[in-house]
Design a protein around this nucleic acid. Structure first.
Lengths: 247, 247
DNA sequence: AAGCCTTTGTGAATACGCGCACAAAGTGCC
DNA sequence: GGCACTTTGTGCGCGTATTCACAAAGGCTT
């Protein structure tokens, strides 16, 4: 993925949280808010790790990057940890989001509850199709992509969500970047190129299915009836990326 | 304890393709089909790597896991490579998919063209809501989740896509697994637990946004400006909120 | 207040992924 | 046929991620 500037050296005052850790923090956060709703006040790394589907040592190391927020012999205070993680992730402030491309997927995103509840405010829906412009979706009126720059400037959009067809994605991306947006979430099945300093994350539905198909094929006996080569072992690809918490 | 430690040692005779490589193969495949449509017959690792947005050495190493399919001094034959990657990913056969949960997202998935074009055939749409059951969506009639096991058996579903609300996801997952499905693509914001041998991949829209927010905050002066955790010992109640950066 | 028990935080070992750089291998020109 | 040029395939070193295992730290009981 298009990485930010390479921070070669990392001083000991280490503000640099490993990327892998950052990617897990939202998972912890969700598990914690779940516990919070159930009235749980404190939680051990073991319990939280189970809820998040990770190894407990990894969880502790991840949290240690934020600081020392646990109490030995007791665990972590749920509310406090929720606050610390939220703050580290930047969720204590609101982020203004624009969604470009209001097809099936864009519509689903516009109505997705998980955004608003985490401080992401959808401030604009835009589409190039005149038939869609003007429609009311999730309480918002779809605007024409001609107004893209205006919408970004007027609402202070800092994150652009691209849900256009593949062919349009790079063009839209160039425009939002030119308009000052430095974070892009891309659903279009293309590799976007962006200048340094701009973050792009990609979500690709068909890629996920293809990865599943790979493992499924392997379980079924390998490519074109090719027999699996690991002899007498457990299934090679069994639950590698998502841990089975318990059988 | 389950037998999971035996995926450690991995020989080269082993068909064990690194997970990171598997995740990139679909990207290469897409780039290649794009070239194919434009009539390109051969491509160098440098060109293909650029199209896929990766380092060329990485591309070559990835492809070397599949076998030696390039010609030194020339490059790779596009058509041949398309076939080899497709075959490795298991795309030379059809995969039968069921989508459970036909809300906004499920609807978008049902109509997503990227599935059918890669050999993924959606054989069933299911929902628990009586108001949705019976509706015609993308040429299919939504069935009631009561019929989940029947649909899986009748159509030979091998991949389940879960797009239900979070609360329903684990229950649905248990049922599809009990019905023999061993690959699950989960869009619900929960950590699913499954027995060994079942693969789960998760797509979480709000997590992606949260990761972007983290980096965005950092760009806005987070890491250098103030120190998020040096003085971060204020109790949760003490409203020590981060000032909103820029308008 | 001393000792026991629980749980954190982290050093150390291991595994993994990335990218440089180069020898090997093939093409095509002369 | 030989030579120069191009591009693959990979050995190697480096940094990151993961996991184990344990000492330090805090609470609780007696």
């Amino acid at each position: 993925m298009t990485s930010r500037q390479n921070r070669n050296h990392r001083d000991r005052a280490d503000r640099g949280i490993p990327e892998a850790t950052v990617a897990r923090l939202p998972v912890y956060l969700r598990a914690l808010t779940g516990l919070q709703e159930r009235g749980v006040a404190t939680v051990s790394s073991e319990e939280l790790a189970a809820a998040a589907g990770v190894n407990s040592a990894k969880l502790r190391k991840d949290l240690s990057h934020l600081g020392s927020y646990g109490t030995r012999g007791v665990g972590y205070e749920v509310e406090y940890l929720v606050y610390q993680i939220s703050r580290e992730l930047g969720l204590t402030q609101d982020w203004v989001v624009a969604i470009i491309g209001v097809g099936n997927l864009g519509r689903a995103l516009a109505g997705y509850g998980g955004f608003a509840s985490r401080g992401f405010r959808v401030a604009g829906l835009l589409d190039a199709d005149e038939a869609i412009v003007g429609q009311e979706i999730s309480g918002m009126t779809v605007e024409h992509t001609d107004r893209l720059e205006d919408v970004i400037a007027d609402h202070g959009v800092s994150i652009a969500v691209i849900a256009t067809p593949a062919a349009a994605a790079q063009g839209v991306c160039d425009r939002v970047v030119a308009a000052g947006v430095t974070s892009v979430l891309n659903f279009a099945p293309v590799v976007l190129s962006v200048p340094d300093g701009v973050d792009v994350r990609k979500v690709d539905l068909s890629i996920e299915l293809q990865i599943l198909a790979f493992h499924e094929q392997r379980k079924a006996g390998g490519p074109d009836g090719y027999a699996p080569l690991e002899t007498g072992d457990a299934p090679p690809g069994a639950t590698q990326y998502v841990e089975a918490v318990e059988a």
